[in-house]
């Protein structure tokens, strides 16, 4: 009973908020607060959505953007986790690379945009490069920090039970840092999506970010809103997808207690 009312509320309340939002939007449009050409009506957006879907452009742009994010993100994670583990375990590696890593971590990836275009031209590679930079350094730092906080007792256990070097890595170090790494993946995936849109706005000939710029240049504010909505929804879906990782039984311990 209680469960049921809660599920109902979880659906009803957000729907109510969305309805109020659209009502406000309509009211502002009707009142003419902004010039017609600068403020589309909800109906125009729905029509624009239909148009974008019908021409297949929305799907194409979404696939293009998702492809870039996925490649850049996965490459950064695949290199960032080993680098972080290495820096977490080896003091000399940490001493050598930590200042530089911190520097690049705090340098906005968007500042690389001019070089990205000069080096890779306009297209997939430039966007992936920027996404890589926005994910790699945070992943390295978070992994390194997680390795540093593994309780010594687990390594004593490993020694007690005769785990060899490689097994220590696969059976102690990696499972021990997994919960923190997954949290970092969620955060950086969000950042990667933001960076991808920004990159495509400047250094793209396709993708959702480019579609935003294209709509602006064509003064199609209805399409602009369509792209914005799709970008937001995909961002939420990416996070929903990564949240699933926290439900893997062998990492649950990191999120409870």
């Amino acid at each position: 009973m209680k469960e049921n009312t809660n599920t109902a509320r979880a659906l009803l309340l957000p729907a109510l908020v969305a309805a109020i939002f659209i009502a406000l939007w309509t009211a502002i449009w009707r009142a003419g607060v902004f010039h017609q050409s600068a403020f589309p009506s909800p109906l125009a957006v729905v029509r624009g959505f239909g148009l974008e879907v019908a021409t297949g452009r929305l799907l194409n742009d979404s696939v293009t953007s998702l492809f870039r994010v996925t490649c850049g993100f996965l490459l950064a994670v695949a290199l960032g986790i080993p680098a972080g583990v290495w820096m977490g375990q080896k003091l000399s590696a940490r001493l050598a690379f930590l200042p530089m890593t911190n520097f690049f971590r705090n340098l906005s990836p968007l500042a690389w945009m001019p070089f990205a275009i000069l080096w890779f031209g306009v297209g997939d590679a430039a966007a992936m490069f920027l996404i890589f930079l926005s994910v790699f350094f945070p992943v390295v730092l978070a992994t390194m920090a997680a390795v540093g906080t593994i309780p010594l007792v687990y390594f004593h256990v490993a020694q007690n039970y005769g785990l060899r070097r490689f097994e220590k890595l696969t059976r102690v170090t990696l499972p021990a840092i997994m919960p923190q790494v997954i949290t970092t993946l969620r955060v950086t995936a969000g950042v990667a999506w933001l960076v991808d849109v920004a990159a495509e706005m400047i250094a793209g000939r396709d993708g959702l970010g480019f579609a935003v710029m294209d709509a602006r240049n064509g003064l199609r504010t209805d399409l602009l809103v369509v792209e914005m909505i799709v970008i937001g929804i995909i961002g939420v879906l990416i996070d929903r997808l990564l949240v699933q990782l926290t439900n893997v039984p062998s990492v649950r311990w990191g999120y409870e207690r």
């Binding site: 007792v153 256990v157 007690n160 102690v172 499972p175 062998s250 990492v251 311990w253």
Partner: peptide
């Protein structure tokens, strides 16, 4: 062969 039972929790929480 020596094995230890630890003062802190020594079980692997991920296993």
């Amino acid at each position: 062969q020596v094995r230890m039972v630890y003062q802190e929790d020594g079980l692997f929480p991920w296993a």
